[in-house]
């Protein structure tokens, strides 16, 4: 049975969330901690653009008629038009923002973008991208709400869930890059900085994952006890039915439980001398698991909503 919205859409939603979340993290970090955590903003912007572009690519693959792209802006009442506007806005703006943060290892790029030293214009972009990024991250959730025939998605909880998941994946994607880079840092000072940054991301993500897990369970509880029989069926599919292995193992275990344990450990004991050398590798593991689990989460919720209606 071919689902109308299948793995390609799940991937599109995932990348959209990742992109939006990355920009949110980059912008928030800039506003609150200034230039100190420049690496976070840098990777936030790169991952943001890449993920948003992948999101657009996945949507084009799903649609099959890229030459009709310009038509996509035609309907102000459609949420998909909204999403298309957001994605096409983020890409150029995010690109310009990225030019404010060229990588230090390529000095010729710095000379290509002479404005990268100015902070105030960059902050403007960050504000814009915070709004657009939130829009994109929330969009991946509430776009599913257009399917009025699938009451499983008709709840603000899906926006909350996908939004938090987006922020979480943004945090962990940046964390992954930092962890990899930490391993090649030369000076003691820069190593410490990287660990500090990863620590912030780690703590923030801890909260996010806890929230995400909680909301997911609340979501399914609400659907099980709601008025719609179809929504109940979808919830049952996830909890005990054919999608249960994907949900419990693929999402919950891999995406929530194990990463939280690792993150708790890292936050508690990770920066002590004994375990410091394991910090980066553990971070790599945790962030990879979160990134994988988040995809399963979106896939599960996407598929669960459609299956009862097809039977």
């Amino acid at each position: 049975m071919e689902l109308p919205w299948g793995p390609v859409i799940a991937a599109a939603l995932y990348f959209g969330g990742l992109g939006g979340g990355s920009f949110i993290v980059a912008s928030t970090t800039s506003f609150i901690s200034g230039e100190e955590f420049r690496e976070i903003m840098k990777f936030g912007s790169y991952i943001g653009i890449l993920a948003t572009a992948l999101c657009g690519l996945c949507l084009s693959i799903h649609a099959g008629h890229p030459e009709r792209l310009l038509f996509m802006y035609s309907n102000p009442t459609s949420m998909i038009t909204f999403g298309t506007c957001v994605i096409t806005a983020i890409l150029p703006i995010g690109l310009i923002y990225a030019t404010f943060l060229p990588p230090d290892s390529l000095p010729w790029l710095k000379s290509l973008f002479p404005w990268s030293v100015y902070v105030k214009p960059r902050k403007l972009f960050e504000l814009i991208l915070f709004i657009l990024g939130s829009g994109l991250a929330g969009y991946t959730g509430f776009v599913l709400g257009i399917a009025w025939a699938e009451p499983f998605w008709e709840t603000p909880l899906i926006t909350a869930l996908f939004f938090i998941s987006a922020v979480s994946t943004g945090l962990m994607a940046i964390g992954l890059c930092l962890a990899i880079l930490r391993l090649v840092q030369v000076t003691e000072e820069s190593q410490k900085l990287f660990v500090e940054m990863m620590h912030r991301l780690d703590v923030a993500d801890g909260y996010m994952l806890a929230l995400e897990g909680g909301i997911a369970l609340l979501y399914l509880y609400v659907m099980l006890n709601g008025t719609s029989g179809i929504a109940k069926q979808s919830a049952q599919l996830l909890l005990t039915g054919t999608l249960a292995p994907l949900f419990w193992v693929g999402f919950f275990l891999i995406g929530i439980i194990i990463p939280i344990i690792i993150e708790l450990f890292l936050a508690w004991k990770g920066r002590t001398a004994k375990y410091l050398k394991f910090y980066a590798p553990l971070m790599i593991v945790a962030s990879s698991l979160v990134l994988v689990g988040a995809f399963y989460m979106r896939y599960c919720f996407l598929v669960a909503g459609q299956i009862p209606l097809l039977s």
Binding site: Y73, P76, P92
Partner: peptide
Amino acid sequence: SAGLLASLGLSTL
């Protein structure tokens, strides 16, 4: 240029 692009898109409305 962004504005130009936007108006192009809006023209499809």
